[in-house]
Nucleic acid binder design. Structure first.
Length: 464
RNA sequence: GGCCCCAUCGUCUAGCGGUUAGGAUCCAUGGUUUUCAUCCAUGUUACCGGAGUUCGAGUCUCCGUGGGGUCACCA
């Protein structure tokens, strides 16, 4: 297998959103799949829009999901002299030229073209200019794009793409302040970094012919391109901030496990037969960008939630306890840790919900919801609970495990000739202050006899 | 608007000329359970429309429709 070099190249203008994370994941997986290299490059040539916080947020998101990049992060803002060298070369070769058109002139031209219902484009007026340049205008540098013919390339996702050369105008590769522009630096860096495969969103499809112009002008080898279809919202429209969590780190705050998020994202646009659950190792082993879907997919929370619940359920307790620390639950050293987690991990779709479940057990209820108590407490309830306390206090054997407590409940229902329902719900409300939650036997085993009795007694006092 | 891309259950998807169109999620029902959840079983729901090619089309071609992307001295 050929070792690939892939990259993720965000611009630090905002947080990392899930669409970006998915393309990064695809790139990362493909590199790992081939035993190749995955790199991170920051596209920060637009000095005005860069932000330090955005950069940190992106790095942080990568850390959280556990995607590692090799080598140093490449910052384009630190490579300006390299780009200048290539621009000078193109100028010298006559493959690029200075254009003295001012912004205002350009705007006017575009307005005229739009009025004539033409596609706004640069008219090439300085392409072969040999006269005296106008005074007071700092020129931009434009690259000579083919005036006719087709620019063709094979996209690993979309197939054969051909775009008329006339659709690509002599685009600007360096602004009047000398800073090179996106399509130029992307091509230069992708080539210089030895990229074999470029996986990116299909909103970049139209940049590809432009970048190919640069590759050809500079004599670089053209990499394989994969343009991944977008992720839309539930309505099939472009994902925006209004669609809730789009910031990757927001998912952490909401209680999602990174493995669930990654599993969710990898299945958006990619599949392997009927398989739904993929460990990272399986993803790496099976992923191939050539299997990527052509069509856009809609973002839907249900599947993510289901996956998250799955990963929570199947996570070893020791690891779960560590993860839970971020959600205010500190039970790593708790002597009933295993019992606590076994009793609750199937009841939370998110870590936030799981933390709530655990809090319910660990902290005695401060008050009792009136609706719950009305439902759970009948006339004979107080007496039943008191009998139960009495049984607990006089139980001849030590009470440790859930089965021990189960035996006590068993004895109670037998002695009093009642159903489990008579004791179960009142007991639950007494211990948790809630109608739902973990199994009674487990809860009591976690609390211990003393705390169990204390909570029941408190409840019987509070409730008339 | 020009150019480009896309189109299977509500959603994520399998399918790669011959299938009772499969799986997952969601939803509903039943079972298990002292509650809830888990788990198990069952069920409802899809090939955008129209031509063509072919013995045969969800699969190939064309047209239409719908959706998306893109047209910066942003990335």
């Amino acid at each position: 297998m050929i070792m690939t070099v892939t990259r993720f190249a965000p611009s630090p203008t905002g947080y990392l959103h899930i669409g970006g994370l998915r393309t990064a994941l695809f790139s990362w997986l493909y590199a790992k799949h081939t035993g190749g290299t995955f790199r991170l490059r920051i596209e920060d040539t637009d000095m005005a829009r860069n932000s330090e916080e955005a950069l940190e947020a992106i790095i942080q998101a990568f850390e959280w999901v556990g995607m590692s990049y090799e080598g140093e992060v490449v910052y384009q803002s630190k490579r300006l002299d390299i780009y200048k060298k290539y621009i000078d070369y193109l100028l010298a070769e006559g493959k690029a030229y200075r254009c003295y058109m001012s912004k205002e002139e350009l705007d006017t031209l575009r307005e005229e073209q739009t009025a004539r219902k033409e596609r706004p484009r640069y008219d090439g007026r300085y392409r072969n200019f040999t006269g005296t340049p106008p005074q007071g205008v700092e020129p931009v540098i434009r690259i000579k794009a083919p005036e006719s013919g087709m620019i063709e390339f094979t996209d690993g996702v979309k197939g054969e793409i051909s775009i008329a050369g006339s659709e690509v105008d002599d685009f600007i590769i360096a602004r009047s302040d000398g800073i090179p522009t996106y399509n130029f630096v992307v091509a230069v860096d992708d080539a210089l970094m030895g990229l074999t495969d470029v996986i990116r969103g299909d909103d970049h499809l139209y940049n590809t012919p432009k970048q190919i112009v640069v590759y050809k002008a500079l004599g670089f080898k053209i990499p394989n391109f994969y343009h991944v279809a977008m992720i839309n919202n539930e309505q099939g429209k472009k994902l925006s901030k209004r669609d809730g969590a789009t910031d990757v780190m927001e998912y952490k705050a909401l209680g999602y496990l990174p493995e669930a998020l990654l599993n969710f994202l990898v299945r958006l646009g990619w599949s392997h037969k009927d398989q739904e659950i993929f460990s990272i190792e399986e993803m790496i082993a099976l992923f191939d960008p050539n299997d990527l879907n052509k069509s856009a997919s809609n973002y839907n929370l249900d599947k993510l939630l289901w996956l998250n619940a799955h990963y929570i359920k199947n996570m070893p307790n020791a690891k779960l306890a560590i993860v839970l620390k971020e959600y205010g639950v500190h039970i790593e050293e708790h002597d009933k840790r295993e019992l606590l987690l076994d009793a609750t991990k199937e009841r939370g779709k998110t870590l936030v919900e799981l933390a709530d479940q655990i809090h319910l057990i660990l902290n005695a209820p401060q008050n009792y919801d009136e609706k719950d108590t009305k439902k759970a407490f009948k006339e004979d309830t107080k007496e039943i609970l008191e009998d139960f306390v009495h049984l607990l206090q006089n139980w001849e054997k030590p009470l440790h495990l859930p089965v021990d407590y189960h035996a006590v409940m068993q004895r109670l229902v037998e002695d009093k000739q009642i159903g489990f329902g008579k004791i179960g719900m009142p007991l639950r409300v007494s211990l948790l202050g809630s109608m739902t939650g973990a199994g009674m036997d487990e809860i009591m085993a976690i609390l211990g006899v003393d705390e169990t009795i204390a909570r029941i007694q408190k409840a019987t006092v509070c409730i008339k």
